[in-house]
Protein backbone atom coordinates (compact mmCIF):
# COMPACT_ATOMS: atom_id res chain seq x y z
CA UNK A 1 0.00 0.00 0.00
CA UNK A 2 2.84 2.36 0.90
CA UNK A 3 4.54 1.66 -2.44
CA UNK A 4 1.31 2.27 -4.29
CA UNK A 5 0.96 5.51 -2.37
CA UNK A 6 4.44 6.61 -3.41
CA UNK A 7 3.77 5.80 -7.06
CA UNK A 8 0.41 7.61 -7.04
CA UNK A 9 1.92 10.64 -5.35
CA UNK A 10 4.79 10.63 -7.89
CA UNK A 11 2.35 10.56 -10.80
CA UNK A 12 0.27 13.31 -9.20
CA UNK A 13 3.38 15.45 -8.68
CA UNK A 14 4.39 15.02 -12.32
CA UNK A 15 0.93 16.05 -13.47
CA UNK A 16 1.10 19.09 -11.17
CA UNK A 17 4.50 20.06 -12.57
CA UNK A 18 3.17 19.87 -16.13
CA UNK A 19 0.13 21.90 -15.19
CA UNK A 20 2.26 24.60 -13.54
CA UNK A 21 4.59 24.70 -16.56
CA UNK A 22 1.67 25.14 -18.98
CA UNK A 23 0.13 27.87 -16.81
CA UNK A 24 3.45 29.72 -16.52
CA UNK A 25 3.96 29.52 -20.27
CA UNK A 26 0.45 30.78 -20.94
CA UNK A 27 0.97 33.69 -18.54
CA UNK A 28 4.27 34.60 -20.20
CA UNK A 29 2.74 34.50 -23.67
CA UNK A 30 -0.23 36.51 -22.43
CA UNK A 31 2.00 39.21 -20.95
CA UNK A 32 4.07 39.36 -24.13
CA UNK A 33 1.00 39.71 -26.34
CA UNK A 34 -0.44 42.28 -23.96
CA UNK A 35 2.75 44.33 -24.10
CA UNK A 36 2.65 44.29 -27.90
CA UNK A 37 -1.08 45.01 -28.12
CA UNK A 38 -1.31 47.70 -25.44
CA UNK A 39 0.11 50.68 -27.42
CA UNK A 40 -2.18 49.91 -30.34
CA UNK A 41 -5.34 48.79 -28.61
CA UNK A 42 -5.52 51.34 -25.79
CA UNK A 43 -5.97 54.38 -28.05
CA UNK A 44 -8.28 52.39 -30.30
CA UNK A 45 -10.50 51.32 -27.41
CA UNK A 46 -10.43 54.86 -25.99
CA UNK A 47 -11.58 56.13 -29.39
CA UNK A 48 -14.31 53.54 -29.92
CA UNK A 49 -15.77 53.50 -26.39
CA UNK A 50 -17.48 56.93 -26.32
CA UNK A 51 -18.96 56.40 -29.79
CA UNK A 52 -20.26 52.96 -28.93
CA UNK A 53 -21.57 54.12 -25.55
CA UNK A 54 -23.53 56.93 -27.23
CA UNK A 55 -25.04 54.52 -29.76
CA UNK A 56 -25.99 51.94 -27.14
CA UNK A 57 -27.34 54.70 -24.86
CA UNK A 58 -29.49 55.88 -27.75
CA UNK A 59 -30.85 52.41 -28.38
CA UNK A 60 -31.64 51.88 -24.68
CA UNK A 61 -33.26 55.32 -24.48
CA UNK A 62 -35.54 54.30 -27.35
CA UNK A 63 -36.33 51.03 -25.59
CA UNK A 64 -36.95 52.71 -22.21
CA UNK A 65 -40.74 52.16 -22.23
CA UNK A 66 -40.24 48.41 -22.72
CA UNK A 67 -39.30 45.87 -20.02
CA UNK A 68 -35.63 45.75 -19.03
CA UNK A 69 -34.94 42.39 -20.73
CA UNK A 70 -36.00 43.72 -24.15
CA UNK A 71 -32.76 45.61 -24.70
CA UNK A 72 -30.73 42.55 -23.85
CA UNK A 73 -32.82 40.39 -26.15
CA UNK A 74 -32.50 42.90 -28.99
CA UNK A 75 -28.72 42.99 -28.65
CA UNK A 76 -28.65 39.20 -28.38
CA UNK A 77 -30.58 38.94 -31.67
CA UNK A 78 -28.19 41.41 -33.27
CA UNK A 79 -25.24 39.44 -31.92
CA UNK A 80 -26.68 36.25 -33.44
CA UNK A 81 -27.16 37.90 -36.83
CA UNK A 82 -23.72 39.51 -36.65
CA UNK A 83 -22.18 36.13 -35.91
CA UNK A 84 -23.85 34.64 -38.96
CA UNK A 85 -22.59 37.52 -41.10
CA UNK A 86 -19.06 37.09 -39.82
CA UNK A 87 -19.27 33.35 -40.42
CA UNK A 88 -20.53 33.92 -43.91
CA UNK A 89 -17.66 36.27 -44.76
CA UNK A 90 -14.76 34.82 -42.83
CA UNK A 91 -15.21 31.08 -42.68
CA UNK A 92 -14.18 28.44 -45.17
CA UNK A 93 -17.65 27.03 -45.66
CA UNK A 94 -16.47 24.34 -48.06
CA UNK A 95 -14.00 22.95 -45.51
CA UNK A 96 -16.52 23.24 -42.66
CA UNK A 97 -19.18 21.45 -44.71
CA UNK A 98 -16.70 18.71 -45.54
CA UNK A 99 -15.80 18.24 -41.87
CA UNK A 100 -19.46 18.19 -40.85
CA UNK A 101 -20.29 15.67 -43.58
CA UNK A 102 -17.37 13.51 -42.51
CA UNK A 103 -18.66 13.51 -38.93
CA UNK A 104 -22.16 12.65 -40.07
CA UNK A 105 -20.97 9.87 -42.40
CA UNK A 106 -18.79 8.27 -39.79
CA UNK A 107 -21.54 8.43 -37.17
CA UNK A 108 -23.76 6.59 -39.62
CA UNK A 109 -21.01 4.06 -40.22
CA UNK A 110 -20.68 3.56 -36.48
CA UNK A 111 -24.38 2.78 -36.30
CA UNK A 112 -24.36 0.40 -39.25
CA UNK A 113 -21.19 -1.50 -38.41
CA UNK A 114 -21.34 -1.54 -34.66
CA UNK A 115 -20.30 -5.22 -34.61
CA UNK A 116 -17.12 -4.53 -36.61
CA UNK A 117 -14.48 -3.51 -34.13
CA UNK A 118 -11.97 -2.31 -36.74
CA UNK A 119 -14.57 -0.18 -38.52
CA UNK A 120 -15.73 1.25 -35.19
CA UNK A 121 -12.22 2.31 -34.22
CA UNK A 122 -11.51 3.72 -37.67
CA UNK A 123 -14.75 5.74 -37.58
CA UNK A 124 -13.94 7.11 -34.15
CA UNK A 125 -10.50 8.12 -35.37
CA UNK A 126 -12.03 9.86 -38.37
CA UNK A 127 -14.64 11.62 -36.25
CA UNK A 128 -11.91 12.93 -33.97
CA UNK A 129 -9.98 14.14 -37.00
CA UNK A 130 -13.05 15.82 -38.49
CA UNK A 131 -13.79 17.54 -35.18
CA UNK A 132 -10.22 18.83 -35.06
CA UNK A 133 -10.54 20.17 -38.61
CA UNK A 134 -13.87 21.74 -37.76
CA UNK A 135 -12.34 23.48 -34.74
CA UNK A 136 -9.47 24.74 -36.86
CA UNK A 137 -11.81 26.19 -39.50
CA UNK A 138 -13.96 27.76 -36.79
CA UNK A 139 -11.00 29.57 -35.27
CA UNK A 140 -10.78 32.42 -37.81
CA UNK A 141 -14.47 33.45 -37.81
CA UNK A 142 -14.61 33.15 -34.01
CA UNK A 143 -11.49 35.34 -33.68
CA UNK A 144 -12.99 37.95 -36.02
CA UNK A 145 -16.31 37.75 -34.18
CA UNK A 146 -14.59 38.58 -30.91
CA UNK A 147 -13.71 42.05 -32.19
CA UNK A 148 -17.29 43.39 -32.15
CA UNK A 149 -18.42 41.04 -29.36
CA UNK A 150 -15.98 42.22 -26.67
CA UNK A 151 -17.05 45.88 -26.74
CA UNK A 152 -20.67 44.72 -26.87
CA UNK A 153 -20.09 42.56 -23.76
CA UNK A 154 -18.60 45.62 -22.03
CA UNK A 155 -21.60 47.75 -22.94
CA UNK A 156 -24.12 45.14 -21.78
CA UNK A 157 -22.12 44.40 -18.63
CA UNK A 158 -22.36 47.96 -17.32
CA UNK A 159 -26.12 47.74 -17.70
CA UNK A 160 -26.94 44.20 -16.59
CA UNK A 161 -24.11 43.07 -14.32
CA UNK A 162 -24.53 45.87 -11.78
CA UNK A 163 -27.39 48.13 -10.89
CA UNK A 164 -27.37 51.71 -9.61
CA UNK A 165 -27.50 52.36 -5.89
CA UNK A 166 -30.98 52.86 -4.57
CA UNK A 167 -31.55 55.98 -2.48
CA UNK A 168 -30.79 55.05 1.12
CA UNK A 169 -28.34 52.29 0.21
CA UNK A 170 -24.75 52.13 1.47
CA UNK A 171 -21.69 51.18 -0.48
CA UNK A 172 -17.91 51.41 -0.38
CA UNK A 173 -15.59 53.34 -2.61
CA UNK A 174 -12.05 52.02 -3.05
CA UNK A 175 -9.29 54.22 -4.38
CA UNK A 176 -6.05 52.47 -5.30
CA UNK A 177 -3.02 54.71 -5.48
CA UNK A 178 0.24 54.20 -7.31
CA UNK A 179 3.08 52.41 -5.58
CA UNK A 180 5.13 55.63 -5.69
CA UNK A 181 2.46 57.49 -3.72
CA UNK A 182 2.08 54.52 -1.40
CA UNK A 183 5.83 54.57 -0.80
CA UNK A 184 5.60 58.17 0.31
CA UNK A 185 3.05 57.12 2.88
CA UNK A 186 -0.60 57.72 2.26
CA UNK A 187 -0.69 60.06 5.20
CA UNK A 188 1.44 62.43 3.15
CA UNK A 189 -0.90 62.18 0.19
CA UNK A 190 -3.85 64.35 1.11
CA UNK A 191 -6.97 62.74 -0.29
CA UNK A 192 -10.45 64.05 0.42
CA UNK A 193 -13.84 63.33 -1.03
CA UNK A 194 -15.61 66.61 -1.73
CA UNK A 195 -18.94 66.97 0.01
CA UNK A 196 -21.82 66.33 -2.37
CA UNK A 197 -25.52 66.64 -1.59
CA UNK A 198 -26.11 63.39 -3.46
CA UNK A 199 -24.30 61.30 -0.87
CA UNK A 200 -23.40 61.20 2.79
CA UNK A 201 -19.85 60.16 3.46
CA UNK A 202 -20.26 57.90 6.47
CA UNK A 203 -16.66 57.06 7.28
CA UNK A 204 -13.37 58.82 6.73
CA UNK A 205 -11.14 57.26 4.09
CA UNK A 206 -9.25 54.57 5.92
CA UNK A 207 -5.84 54.14 4.26
CA UNK A 208 -3.67 51.05 4.12
CA UNK A 209 -2.03 48.68 1.66
CA UNK A 210 -2.07 51.26 -1.15
CA UNK A 211 -5.79 51.72 -0.90
CA UNK A 212 -8.23 54.17 0.64
CA UNK A 213 -11.75 53.07 1.42
CA UNK A 214 -14.79 55.23 2.15
CA UNK A 215 -18.29 54.15 3.02
CA UNK A 216 -21.00 56.33 1.55
CA UNK A 217 -24.75 56.50 1.76
CA UNK A 218 -26.72 57.41 -1.37
CA UNK A 219 -29.22 60.19 -0.76
CA UNK A 220 -30.42 61.63 -4.06
CA UNK A 221 -31.24 59.98 -7.34
CA UNK A 222 -29.32 61.05 -10.40
CA UNK A 223 -26.07 60.66 -12.26
CA UNK A 224 -23.58 62.42 -10.00
CA UNK A 225 -19.92 63.22 -10.23
CA UNK A 226 -17.89 62.65 -7.09
CA UNK A 227 -14.79 64.80 -6.80
CA UNK A 228 -11.70 63.52 -5.05
CA UNK A 229 -9.00 65.99 -4.16
CA UNK A 230 -5.74 64.09 -4.45
CA UNK A 231 -2.94 66.45 -3.48
CA UNK A 232 -3.43 69.38 -5.86
CA UNK A 233 -5.30 67.39 -8.47
CA UNK A 234 -8.99 66.67 -8.74
CA UNK A 235 -10.12 63.24 -9.87
CA UNK A 236 -13.72 62.63 -10.82
CA UNK A 237 -15.80 59.47 -10.63
CA UNK A 238 -19.36 58.96 -11.76
CA UNK A 239 -21.92 57.69 -9.25
CA UNK A 240 -25.40 56.62 -10.28
CA UNK A 241 -28.28 56.60 -7.80
CA UNK A 242 -31.58 55.41 -9.19
CA UNK A 243 -34.53 53.19 -8.49
CA UNK A 244 -34.72 52.11 -12.10
CA UNK A 245 -32.62 50.60 -14.83
CA UNK A 246 -29.51 52.59 -15.72
CA UNK A 247 -25.97 51.95 -16.81
CA UNK A 248 -23.29 52.33 -14.18
CA UNK A 249 -19.54 52.57 -14.23
CA UNK A 250 -18.13 50.62 -11.32
CA UNK A 251 -14.45 51.27 -12.11
CA UNK A 252 -12.47 54.14 -13.52
CA UNK A 253 -8.86 53.18 -14.03
CA UNK A 254 -5.66 54.26 -15.75
CA UNK A 255 -5.22 53.16 -19.38
CA UNK A 256 -5.35 49.42 -19.72
CA UNK A 257 -7.15 48.19 -22.80
CA UNK A 258 -8.81 45.21 -21.15
CA UNK A 259 -10.23 47.27 -18.28
CA UNK A 260 -11.25 49.95 -20.74
CA UNK A 261 -13.02 47.38 -22.86
CA UNK A 262 -15.05 46.02 -19.96
CA UNK A 263 -15.57 49.38 -18.21
CA UNK A 264 -16.25 51.52 -21.25
CA UNK A 265 -18.28 54.38 -19.80
CA UNK A 266 -15.73 56.72 -18.24
CA UNK A 267 -12.46 57.88 -19.77
CA UNK A 268 -9.24 56.47 -18.35
CA UNK A 269 -7.65 58.23 -15.40
CA UNK A 270 -4.69 60.47 -16.28
CA UNK A 271 -1.43 58.55 -16.56
CA UNK A 272 0.45 61.17 -14.60
CA UNK A 273 -1.75 61.15 -11.49
CA UNK A 274 -1.23 59.16 -8.30
CA UNK A 275 -4.58 57.41 -8.52
CA UNK A 276 -4.51 54.06 -10.26
CA UNK A 277 -8.22 53.28 -10.03
CA UNK A 278 -11.43 54.20 -8.25
CA UNK A 279 -14.03 51.54 -7.74
CA UNK A 280 -17.60 51.86 -6.51
CA UNK A 281 -19.08 48.67 -5.14
CA UNK A 282 -22.43 48.64 -6.97
CA UNK A 283 -24.89 45.86 -6.10
CA UNK A 284 -25.48 43.04 -8.56
CA UNK A 285 -28.62 42.95 -10.68
CA UNK A 286 -31.02 40.43 -9.21
CA UNK A 287 -32.90 38.61 -11.96
CA UNK A 288 -32.87 35.08 -13.32
CA UNK A 289 -33.56 36.39 -16.81
CA UNK A 290 -31.19 39.32 -17.19
CA UNK A 291 -29.41 39.70 -13.81
CA UNK A 292 -25.75 39.41 -12.85
CA UNK A 293 -24.06 36.61 -14.81
CA UNK A 294 -27.42 35.38 -16.10
CA UNK A 295 -27.40 38.09 -18.77
CA UNK A 296 -24.46 36.33 -20.40
CA UNK A 297 -26.47 33.10 -20.50
CA UNK A 298 -29.40 35.06 -21.98
CA UNK A 299 -27.13 36.61 -24.59
CA UNK A 300 -25.58 33.27 -25.46
CA UNK A 301 -28.84 31.33 -25.69
CA UNK A 302 -30.76 33.92 -27.69
CA UNK A 303 -27.90 34.63 -30.09
CA UNK A 304 -27.38 30.90 -30.65
CA UNK A 305 -31.08 30.37 -31.30
CA UNK A 306 -31.12 33.25 -33.76
CA UNK A 307 -28.03 31.88 -35.46
CA UNK A 308 -29.61 28.43 -35.75
CA UNK A 309 -32.90 29.77 -37.07
CA UNK A 310 -31.34 32.13 -39.63
CA UNK A 311 -28.57 29.76 -40.66
CA UNK A 312 -30.29 28.66 -43.89
CA UNK A 313 -30.99 32.27 -44.91
CA UNK A 314 -27.33 33.18 -44.57
CA UNK A 315 -26.32 29.92 -46.21
CA UNK A 316 -23.94 29.11 -43.40
CA UNK A 317 -23.05 25.78 -41.85
CA UNK A 318 -21.30 25.27 -38.53
Amino acid sequence: MERLNTILIGIADAVLWCRDAVVSLAVMVGHALDAIAEPVLSPLVAFVNPILTSIVDGVFAALAPLPVWCGLTLFSVLAGLLSLGVFRLCSNQVAISRALDDIKANLLALKLYKDELRVTFRCQYRIAGAIARLQWHMFRPVAVMLLPMLPLLGQLGVRYQWRPLHPGEQTQIDMIVDESAEGQGLGGLQVTLEADPAVTVETPAVPGDGKLVWRIHADRTGRHVLKFHVGDAIVEKELVVSDGFARVSPTRAKTDWTTQLLQPVEPALPETGSVRSIHIDYPSVDSWVYGSDYWIVHLFVVSMLVALVFRPIFGVRF
Binding site: Q172, D174, T203, P204, V206, G208, D209, K211, W214, R215
Partner: peptide
Protein backbone atom coordinates in the same frame (compact mmCIF):
# COMPACT_ATOMS: atom_id res chain seq x y z
CA UNK B 1 -10.24 59.32 13.36
CA UNK B 2 -12.23 56.68 15.22
CA UNK B 3 -12.63 54.35 12.25
CA UNK B 4 -10.98 51.21 10.97
CA UNK B 5 -10.94 48.96 7.97
CA UNK B 6 -10.81 45.19 7.82
CA UNK B 7 -9.51 43.49 4.66
CA UNK B 8 -9.62 39.78 3.96
CA UNK B 9 -9.87 37.55 0.92
CA UNK B 10 -10.47 40.49 -1.43
CA UNK B 11 -13.23 41.91 0.75
CA UNK B 12 -13.24 45.09 2.75
CA UNK B 13 -15.36 46.50 5.53
CA UNK B 14 -15.02 50.03 6.89
CA UNK B 15 -16.50 50.75 10.29
CA UNK B 16 -16.72 53.72 12.58
Amino acid sequence: DAAARIDWQGRTVVLN
